Simulated scan of single mutants.
Amino acid sequence: MDVLETVPTRRRTAADAVVELRQYTLKPGSRDTLIDLFEREFVETQEAEGMSVLGQFRDLDDPERFVWLRGFPDMTTRARSLTAFYDGPVWAAHRDAARATMVDTDDVLLLRPAGPGMGLRRPGTRPPVGAAALPPTLVTATICHLDASAEDGFLAFHQRLVDPALRAAGAPALATLVTEPAANGYPRLPVREGARVLVRLAAFLDRAAYDRHLAALARSPAWRLASAEMDAALSRPVETLRLAPTARSAIR
């Protein structure tokens, strides 16, 4: 079952050409406060300026981390849309409340699809404002930090060995993304400068499905071979975020 099929209208639109993976460190005990504010005030109002709020998540391994994905059709639109929103009345009205929850918001990866058909499809209509039911889905963002750019051989290796082993173990990719090389056109919001990454997003129907995936990987000779070669090619260990979608996350 396609996890995105749980989005009410089951409608798809084209994948965004630019995606931000944003990780916020928050003050202790403030994550739910920010999520409530974000889902009430910052979803439709950002999309009205031409961007996509693709998903909001609680990091299952860090109670002070809020993770979200935002998409844009291109870098020019990104700069224009961010200017319109952060200079606009909604952010002006609520920025102090949002900032009061935050310690750091600069951990941002600026990404693009790794190739044709590898982008993150925009889900259909999300639950309405006020929705409270949490989906059981678990989403993973696996971040590979590269010594060289993904185009210098790692992407081909990943698609030849790593991705098939993960799919065989029950984790088809929602998207495979690599670093967007263009300069950050909106310096008011910093991104990780100099980052070279490949990010694979996957989704599981629940935590039990994720546990079955891990067990399948542990039994897989193909995965043992692929993961050993992958570790040797990376500049640091693979980083895996285990994420629980919020009540209004479109990816759910």
Rank of each mutant, 00 (worst) to 15 (best):
R236N: 05
R112Y: 04
R11W: 14
T77D: 03
A150D: 03
R212P: 04
A17F: 02
E151T: 11
R224V: 15
V238F: 03
L4S: 04
A195F: 06
V67C: 02
E229H: 08
R10Q: 15
L198C: 12
L134E: 09
A100L: 10
E39L: 08
S227E: 10
A133C: 13
A148W: 11
L234T: 08
G115Q: 03
P187A: 14
P221H: 12
A150F: 01
M51C: 12
V3N: 03
T125N: 08
A202G: 11
T76I: 12
T83Q: 03
G50L: 06
W68P: 00
V53M: 08
L174M: 10
R212H: 11
R58P: 02
L82T: 02
A132Y: 04
R122G: 07
L69D: 00
A250D: 03
R192F: 14
E49Y: 04
G55I: 05
A165Q: 02
R112M: 09
P245A: 05
T105Y: 07
A222M: 11
M230C: 12
A79E: 05
L26G: 01
H158R: 05
R188T: 13
D211T: 14
R22F: 07
E41C: 07
R200P: 07
A182D: 15
T83P: 00
L198W: 02
D16M: 13
V43L: 08
L82E: 05
R192S: 15
P63E: 13
T6R: 10
R99T: 14
R58H: 09
R10W: 11
A133G: 14
A92P: 03
H213Y: 10
E64N: 14
F204V: 05
T142L: 07
A131N: 07
T9H: 05
S52F: 01
P135V: 12
L177P: 00
G88H: 05
T83F: 00
D206I: 15
V199P: 01
Q23L: 13
S81I: 06
D106V: 14
A97Q: 09
L37T: 05
R224Q: 15
L69M: 06
L109S: 02
G124V: 10
R70C: 09
A141H: 00
T101P: 07
Q159C: 15
Y86G: 08
A232W: 05
W91Y: 04
E44D: 09
D147M: 13
D106S: 15
G119N: 08
Q46V: 01
R122T: 13
F157M: 14
A228G: 15
R70N: 07
E151R: 06
A48H: 01
D62W: 01
Y86D: 09
R192T: 15
L120D: 00
A15T: 09
L21A: 05
P113G: 08
R78Y: 07
G117N: 08
A100I: 09
R126M: 13
E239Y: 00
L234F: 09
R31L: 06
S149M: 03
L201Y: 03
G115W: 02
L34Q: 00
A168H: 08
G124Y: 06
R212L: 12
Q56I: 07
A226H: 01
A250H: 01
R12G: 07
L34S: 01
A209C: 12
S30R: 13
G55Q: 02
V18T: 05
G153M: 09
F72Y: 06
T33D: 05
H213M: 11
P181I: 10
D106Y: 03
A218H: 09
F72M: 06
R99K: 12
A175L: 10
E239C: 04
H94C: 10
L177Q: 01
R207E: 15
